[in-house]
Every structure is written in structure tokens, then in C-alpha cells.
């Protein structure tokens, strides 16, 4: 249903995701290989408030905006972020649809799929060597941790959102 309220919520979440993703780019990062993936918080909130399609749109909107304003349309950074976004949706949507996972499971699965997608595309397009996978122990552990962190934040946000289902659990 395309109610104005729904559209407003979505716009807000996309804007929030973009702001968080931008913040992450601006903040100094001691470990360039690890991203917190804060933008995914808004995708989780969208899943909670708007359902599956909401989460998909918020992710797509975030990737698109970041590409337009930060990266250039076909720069490696954009391609990698799109690959990560697509891979995380491919995992998060089925996890959501089973109804058996909370934000925590969905968020961890999404974060893990994100790095796997990025490593796979980076290996195929840019580095052409299976060696990037040497980073997996490092990045995988980080993905699990950031996935849990993001789920926690998303849960807190959803509890404050008046129409959020999280508040009714």
C-alpha cells in the first residue's frame, strides 16, 4: 500500500541510512577492511515497520545515494557496496520470511553475506586471486560482531517508533 505515511517513513529511513553510511565514511577508521555497516540499521527498522519491500527499498536507496554523492556511479567502491547490499538482501529477506529469526539473526546473516558478496566480487573483478579470502577469518568475525551491534541498535529504535511491531512483542 502506498500511503503517504508509508512513503514518509521510507524517505526518513533512506535518509537515515544515507546519513549513517556517510558518517561511517567520514569517521577515521583504524581498520580499513572492517565496516560497521551502520546503514543496515535502517534496513532492519524498515523490515520492522514497512515489511520486506520496505527493507529492500531502503537498502537500494542507500546504495544509490551513496553512489551518487560519494563514489561515482561505477567506481569500485560503488560496485562493491552494491554487491554487498544485494548479497545481504538475498540472505536477510529469506531469513525474515521464515519468521524464525529475530533482528539478531537477520542482521548477522546480512552482515556476513555483505562481506562474502564484496569479497567474491572483489576477487572476480578487481584482484583475480582467491587470496582475498585470507581475510575471511578477520572480516567474518567482525561481521558477526557488527551484525549483533546493529540488531541491538535497530531494536532500540524500533521500540521508540510508535507503529513499530517491536513495541508490541
Amino acid at each position: 500500500m502506498r500511503s503517504p505515511a508509508r512513503l514518509t517513513t521510507m524517505a526518513m529511513l533512506v535518509a537515515g541510512a544515507f546519513a549513517l553510511a556517510s558518517l561511517e565514511r567520514v569517521l577515521p577508521n583504524p581498520f580499513p577492511m572492517i565496516r560497521l555497516g551502520l546503514g543496515n540499521i535502517m534496513t532492519l527498522v524498515a523490515f520492522g515497520t514497512l515489511g520486506v519491500s520496505g527493507g529492500v527499498w531502503v537498502t537500494a536507496g542507500r546504495v544509490g545515494l551513496v553512489a551518487l554523492l560519494w563514489g561515482g556511479l561505477f567506481s569500485p567502491a560503488t560496485v562493491l557496496s552494491a554487491a554487498g547490499g544485494a548479497a545481504s538482501l538475498l540472505v536477510m529477506v529469506p531469513l525474515l520470511l521464515t519468521g524464525r529469526f529475530s533482528f539478531y539473526g537477520i542482521s548477522m546473516g546480512g552482515a556476513y553475506a555483505h562481506i562474502l558478496g564484496q569479497l567474491a566480487v572483489a576477487t572476480l573483478l578487481y584482484v583475480r586471486s582467491a587470496g582475498l579470502m585470507a581475510l575471511l577469518p578477520f572480516m567474518g568475525a567482525a561481521a558477526i560482531a557488527t551484525g549483533i551491534l546493529n540488531a541491538w541498535v535497530a531494536g532500540k529504535l524500533l521500540a521508540r517508533y510508535p507503529g513499530g511491531s517491536g513495541s508490541r512483542v
Binding site: G51, G99, S102, L158
Partner: peptide, 30 residues
């Protein structure tokens, strides 16, 4: 509309174990 739980469930724990084990063995898959 679908409801999403915000608190961890046992399935999340299972997924955590799965991902952690995969992460731990990944160097051997190289």
C-alpha cells in the same frame, strides 16, 4: 504485516554458531 522480533532467539544462537564455525575453518578452505 509481518512482525519481527527484536530480542535474540535460539535460532539466532544457532546461526551465530554456524557463522562462527565457518569463520574459524575458512583458512583451511583456502
Amino acid at each position: 504485516m509481518m512482525e519481527v522480533k527484536t530480542r535474540p532467539r535460539i535460532t539466532d544462537g544457532a546461526l551465530l554458531v554456524l557463522l562462527a564455525v565457518f569463520t574459524a575453518v575458512s583458512p583451511r578452505l583456502l
